[in-house]
Design a binder for these strands. Structure first.
Length: 822
RNA sequence: GCCCGGGUGGCGAAACUGGUAGACGCGCCAGACUCAAAAUCUGGUUCUGGAGACAGAGUGUCGGUUCGACUCCGACCCCGGGCACCA
């Protein structure tokens, strides 16, 4: 290797070596501990952007580090291939989504190979492969049979541009996440997965996910949103009961304020509101207005709180007093029972509403301490002590909570209840490019699942688009079927699944991508859970929650024996360009291909790792790449110069000069520090710094003799090995140049030689009143008294101590001495 | 409004357990090599003063704890993310 460093040549040849040796093909083995390393698979949008480069480089660094540490590592890759952009491309350019997707995959796979990711390509699949979605359909039917799937007509978010239903989470600020236009509300029959059955477990298990960032767990906790409260029935007053007798049911987290209720508020869609509308034109007009407002879907949050009184009253469950019922626009039909008890004294929203409409405000809680409380200015919303509450007076809120709950339970008018904010997962999409929902609608038999032997329901790939609507809805060959039960003409479901379905279990399928009977086999239990999952912060809630849900579904179906899918989680910050998230529109600066051709994969990977710690968002700039290309070249030249100077003897620490010993200490410090940075801290930016420092130390070292040159060789080998997870190509080439015959990916991370870390002399900082005034060099095992007198003898220190009284001397062994004077 | 992060040179950042703030890199400046340029190498580079040794100031702001604070505590300002008529 006497040639000058040419990254493209080196990288191609090293990649061929890996391919020939099939280094990254993983198999189940009892010989070493398994390590499943996974980065979130990409949507095949066309080409990689810098966000992808960051994500998969981080994944690959973790992969390669764990190989060096002796694990049996598996790092797979696949494609989240269903989704809207393929359809949009088809509509725009007339290319069928399947072909567009396959072309993109081929191109992006090539880019990943060029970047040198150590991926087990034998496991690759795309979610649009029938062999994959076959099992998703199969599992959906199993869940249907278990009662975890249901069909419900419900209000949905309708995107008028994309002509499809959006999940709540796909609506951002009232607009579709892709189209950007305001969503409308429509009623439609939809398929739902009962994720709420698992709400409790999904929440509780977060406490045990020690390998997850606290911020992500918090986001999931908020999303699931557990609240502890009481469900209370307010009987309809006798005069109104004739119209239909069901009590008005509400849910509250503050039963301690029950005696402060002065009105009830129900949603416009609530049955009581409809009932009142029949009798009162004012109420009917208001209910109508609310519906229109929701259809227009403006900024709900800034909406003025409005309502109308009905002539209905209910009875207070404890006192029997009549309470007026209002229809209010701030009550959500979808949450709880669509009705609330209003306590204007102790809820700010209820307070504002009461002030606006002149409804009485009654104080039932007073501050336990000295907090201010002026019900003319605002509601008092803290917990406190009960007043004006009869037998409950004087109780603290917490005790009153229990006492009032018991009193209600005794009367049969209430019960304690845990509520969740989480809703069931609507999985139907009125789109073409997705997994067909394996159901058949028969006039006689109703819903009939597609029989197992007829799976998969294949998505036709030869289609033509007329407008945005799914071609399936007009494709007779697809939807005209005979009912599997009665044989009569029936209609196949033409909706497809939300693509979050595919990404909810792909990680398990990678363990056994060819499993046939059924979707997973015993290999899934060898590889899962994923030991380290890497991906973008934008998936902190939905994808991760759905995947956790699916894992539990697969566990309860007997296919998986763990509770959680991802043991350790690394959430990447975003790669920004001009302050915005990187995307296709970012132009050349965001195009890794240009950089790859100019500087090579090692430089691009290193620059990306060096730019910032992984969890931090940062603005990408090309400037750093050139610097890292320079560093690769320096390392290359350093190794060449070293080799050109001839052979070295076996390392003998006893023969080293001071310079040799210093270098050797630096080598082993680097090894120790990098091990911690790679394994525990996940700060790969500081690994790059550490390798730079070691390389600088080698450059500066002037070997006194051949023994020192042996220390230089050791330093170079450590630098190369430590650097290899980040820059795997150049390091492989240098590794073999340094005389190693086995591949670097098969090497073992060396143990730190503790004796090399020992220093005979240490430099102590001397401070006077906390300010650095000098340094003293002393033997490492110096006693404290000697250190003190040496510090006081320091010339510059003397100047600051002279004429003053030494009050105290603080000595931190091996670090510093602080002399306190006055 | 509530819940998380974060604020350090011209720039990206480091300082992990309270112990030399600015490692490492980018950029810039100077020098070497060169007819010249690029590349490469060497040195310098927080600010202010000083030829320099050195001194003073300095990690968003104000205050506190401590021999000693980027790090801990209290109040506040700003930036980013998440949630939000959730009863």
């Amino acid at each position: 290797m006497n040639a000058p460093y040419d990254p493209r040549t080196v990288e191609q040849s090293v990649q061929q070596t890996w391919d020939a040796a099939r280094c990254f093909e993983a198999g189940e083995s009892a010989a070493a501990e398994k390590f499943y390393c996974l980065a979130m698979f990409p949507y095949p949008s066309g080409q990689l952007h810098m966000g992808h480069v960051r994500c998969y480089t981080l994944g690959d660094v973790i992969n390669r580090y764990h190989r060096l540490k002796g694990y049996n590592v598996m790092q797979p890759m696949g494609w989240d291939a269903f989704g809207l952009p393929a359809e949009n491309a088809a509509i725009k350019n007339g290319i069928p989504p399947a072909r567009w997707t396959r072309d993109n995959i081929a191109y992006m796979r090539g880019q990943m190979r060029e970047l040198g990711f150590g991926i087990d390509w034998s496991r690759e699949f795309a979610t649009c492969d029938p062999e994959y979605y076959h099992w998703e359909q199969w599992f959906f039917i199993k869940l249907y049979e278990k009662g975890l799937v249901y069909r419900k007509s419900s209000m949905v978010n309708w995107d008028p541009v994309d002509q499809t239903v959006l999940a709540n989470e796909q609506v951002v600020d009232g607009c579709g996440w892709r189209s950007g236009v305001p969503v409308e509300r429509r009623e439609m029959p939809q398929w739902f997965l009962k994720i709420t059955d698992y709400a409790e477990e999904l929440l509780d298990e977060l406490d045990r996910l020690d390998g997850w960032p606290e911020s992500v767990k918090n986001m999931q906790r908020n999303w699931i949103g557990r609240s502890e409260g009481v469900e209370i029935d307010f009987p309809v007053s006798a005069a109104d009961a004739a119209a239909g007798g069901d009590p008005l049911r509400v849910y509250t987290t503050r039963p301690d304020t029950l005696l402060g209720v002065t009105y009830m508020a129900v949603a416009a869609e609530h049955p009581l509101a409809r009932q009142a509308a029949e009798r009162s034109p004012e109420v009917a007009a208001f209910v109508d207005k609310c519906r229109n407002m929701q259809t227009a879907e403006a900024e709900i949050a800034t909406l003025e709180k409005e309502g109308v009184p009905t002539s209905l009253t209910v009875e207070h469950p404890l006192t029997g007093e009549p309470i007026p019922v209002w229809v209010a626009n701030f009550v959500l039909m979808e949450y709880g029972s669509g009705a609330v008890m209003a306590v204007p004294g102790h809820d700010q929203r209820d307070w504002e509403f009461a002030r606006k409409y002149g409804i009485p405000i009654k104080q039932v809680i007073e501050p336990a301490g000295d907090e201010p409380c002026d019900l003319d200015a605002a509601a008092f919303t803290d917990y406190g002590k009960l007043v004006n509450s009869g037998e409950f007076d004087g109780m603290a809120s917490a005790r009153a909570f229990a006492a009032i709950a018991e009193a209600l339970e005794a009367k049969g008018l209430g019960r304690r209840r845990t509520n969740f904010r989480l809703r069931d997962w609507g999985v139907s999409r009125q789109r073409y490019w997705g997994c067909p929902i394996p159901m058949i609608h028969c006039d006689a038999c109703g819903i009939v699942p597609v029989p197992e032997q007829d799976l998969p329901v294949l998505l036709p790939t030869e289609v033509t688009f007329e407008g945005v609507r799914s071609p399936l809805t007009t494709m007779e060959s697809f939807y005209r079927v005979n009912c599997p039960q009665c044989g009569a003409a029936a209609r196949r479901e033409t909706d497809t699944f939300d693509t979050f379905m595919e990404s909810s279990w792909y990680y398990a399928r990678f363990a056994c991508p060819d499993a046939n009977q059924p979707m997973l086999d015993e290999r899934a239990n060898y590889w899962t859970p994923v030991d380290h999952y890497v991906g973008g912060i934008e998936h902190a809630i939905l994808h991760l929650l759905y995947a956790r849900f699916f894992h539990k579904l697969m566990r309860d179906a007997g296919m998986i024996n763990s509770d959680e899918p991802f043991t350790r989680l690394l959430m990447l910050g975003m790669v920004l360009k001009d302050g915005r998230k990187m995307s296709k529109s970012s132009g050349d600066a965001g195009n890794p291909q240009v950089l790859l051709e100019k500087y090579g994969a090692d430089a691009v990977r290193t620059a990306m790792m060096f730019a910032a710690p992984p969890d931090q968002s940062f603005e990408w700039s090309e400037a750093g790449v050139e610097g890292q290309a320079r560093f690769c070249r320096r390392l290359w030249n350093l190794v060449q110069d070293h080799l050109a100077a001839g052979d070295v003897p076996a390392l003998n620490p006893a023969e080293l000069s001071d310079a040799g010993r210093d270098l050797r200490r630096k080598s082993h410090e680097t090894l120790q520090r990098a091990d911690d940075d790679y394994g525990r801290r996940l700060t790969f930016n500081t690994v790059v710094s550490a390798v730079h420092e070691l390389t600088n130390a080698v450059s500066r070292t002037e070997p006194a003799h051949e023994h020192d040159r042996a220390a230089v060789r050791e330093a170079l080998k450590i630098a190369v090995l430590v650097f290899s997870p980040i820059a795997p190509h150049v390091t492989q080439e240098l590794w073999s140049a340094l005389g190693e015959r086995a591949l670097l990916v098969e090497a073992q991370w060396p143990a730190v030689d503790e004796s090399a870390l020992v220093q005979d002399t240490v430099e102590l900082v001397v401070q006077v009143n906390g300010k650095v005034r000098g340094h003293v060099s002393l033997p490492a095992d110096v006693d404290e008294d000697t250190a003190r007198s040496a510090a006081l003898e320091n010339e510059n220190v003397e100047r600051f101590v002279a004429g003053k009284t030494v009050r105290k001397v603080i000595a931190v062994p091996g670090k510093l001495i602080n002399i306190v004077v006055s």
